[in-house]
Design a protein around this nucleic acid. Structure first.
Length: 421
RNA sequence: GUGGGUGUAGUUCAAUGGCAGAGCACCGGAUUGUGGUUCCGGGCGUUGUGGGUUCGACUCCCAUCACCCACCCCA
């Protein structure tokens, strides 16, 4: 074969689809129970949308975006994340009118031109929640609780919720200043990356993995000490709500968000044992985003999580998502007369939602029965020459070996009765 | 974008310069229409791809692609 799947992408094969359906529908169910409705946006958008929202200096925009120009010279990008498109749709479709707030969720592929690694792909699938229209700390807690409860419901245990507040733009600015002041005397001890970070993104100095940078960062000031009064109150209130909702969390003042639009609450769910990419999901408040892309000053909060990493974590915890579904019955016919009688029955059963396998290329009785066994069907529905002559069907339970001779239409009823159990 | 590891049958892996093999899976058979167990039979693989060294390359060298792992970044 001459063609290969693009780097960093993968096929979800039939043997895995069941798991994917499981985790996706669990998310949809929980989101719906919390009053969130699905929104689906295109997988590509104007490149500018992401440049404006994520920030031109962010890595996502600088080097990870799949960009392309269409036949009329318009600049587009495959979406690297889901929040900006949802915000765009919210504004474009005037969802702000007539409702106090919007509760939205999405599921779908995202694209980043990254070097593939454990838990990291170029096309990856995310689930996310966006709550748009209120700054009230209850909603921070609600959104976070949906994430936590979703992961919990699936059975994930060895995870931890880390919480931080990056404050409003003012506190944030003051903090950046404080960080720069703190690191300035050590500037030439820092790694080259950090020297750039110092002027561009001081916060990134905090999670550098180089030893000396780490040591210096030890004594750095904490964001939490630079929150102004309203931000402090907001953060305390979020914690309070979480506690009352029974969501366990730890404060981690070093959580840094990669995208520029985050304000106040920032959080992440960490799972050790995923390798270097140990973040299961992350999110935060983005009060500045909607205004930044041309809307009014509308507060919002949300999160996004990666299904691939979720699946890795589930495997790590040996959580069984249930067996792949198998056929209800396998139809066996011998000879043309039997087949003629069988085909209408086959259609009838299938229309009734019963999964019946049939393969006329297997002509020996033995091969057909073997195939029935191999596909793990519960029943073999046998119509041979004798049955055909008598207008009957032999229904064999492949587990017990028990078999019954039934009228052709009685076979239908029998299987339906069985399905109900 | 940088560094390390890996690439042989559908799959898991052997074969350290001399005829490319095994387990599992799959298919067929062991007298006419009863599966799972057992027995027998069934593999012509561009050894990821392209070059090079050599009488001879899965094996050594170079390049390239892909995967894995880490940096980076994040989900």
């Amino acid at each position: 074969m001459n063609y290969k799947i693009p780097r960093g992408t993968y096929d979800i094969l039939p043997s895995q689809s069941h798991d994917w359906h499981k985790i996706i529908s669990a998310f949809r169910q929980l989101a719906a129970a919390c009053g969130y409705e699905e929104i689906t946006t295109p997988v590509f958008e104007q490149a500018q949308l992401f440049e404006r929202s994520s920030g031109e200096t962010s890595d996502v925009v600088k080097k990870e975006m799949y960009r392309f120009t269409d036949q009329k010279g318009r600049e587009f990008a495959l979406r690297p994340e889901g929040t900006a498109p949802v915000a765009r749709s919210y504004l474009e479709n005037r969802l702000d009118i007539g409702a106090a707030h919007s509760k939205l969720y999405y599921v779908g592929p995202m694209f980043r031109y990254d070097r593939p690694q454990a838990g990291r792909y170029r096309q990856f699938y995310q689930y996310g929640i966006e709550f748009i229209g209120s700054d009230h700390p209850y909603f921070d807690a609600e959104v976070i609780s949906i994430l936590w409860n979703y992961l919990s419901v699936l059975g994930i245990k060895r995870m931890r919720l880390e919480l931080n507040s990056v404050g409003c733009p003012e506190c944030s600015k003051a903090y950046d200043q404080a960080l720069q002041d703190y690191f300035r005397p050590h500037l030439n001890e820092l790694c080259p990356d950090c020297q750039i970070r110092h002027s561009q993104k001081p916060r990134r100095l905090l999670d550098c993995k180089v030893k000396t940078c780490k040591q210096i960062a030890q004594g750095a000031p904490s964001q939490l000490d630079y929150l102004d009064e309203p931000c402090k109150v907001h953060f305390a209130s979020v914690q309070d709500y979480l506690a009352r909702m029974n969501i366990p969390f730890v404060i981690n003042p070093r959580i840094v968000r990669g995208l520029d639009y985050y304000t106040n609450t920032a959080f992440e769910v960490i799972y050790e044992g995923l390798g270097a990419q140990n973040s299961l999901a992350g999110g935060g408040r983005y009060n500045g985003l909607l205004e930044q892309i041309g809307g009014k000053n509308i507060p919002a909060i949300g999160f996004a999580g990666g299904f691939e990493r979720l699946l890795l974590a589930l495997r790590e915890e040996q959580i069984d998502l249930g067996a792949r579904p198998v056929a209800d019955a396998y139809l066996i016919t011998m000879g043309p007369a039997a087949q003629q009688l069988a085909l209408p029955l086959l259609s009838q059963l299938r229309l009734g939602g019963i999964w019946v396998e049939y393969d006329p290329t297997k002509n020996s009785f033995k091969a057909q029965l073997k195939a029935a066994n191999n596909c793990q069907a519960r029943f073999a529905l046998i119509i041979g020459e004798d049955e055909a002559a008598a207008g009957k069907a032999l229904l064999k339970d492949l587990q017990s070996g028990e078999q019954r001779l039934l009228e052709l239409d009685a076979a239908n009823q029998f299987i339906e009765a069985f399905k109900r159990n």
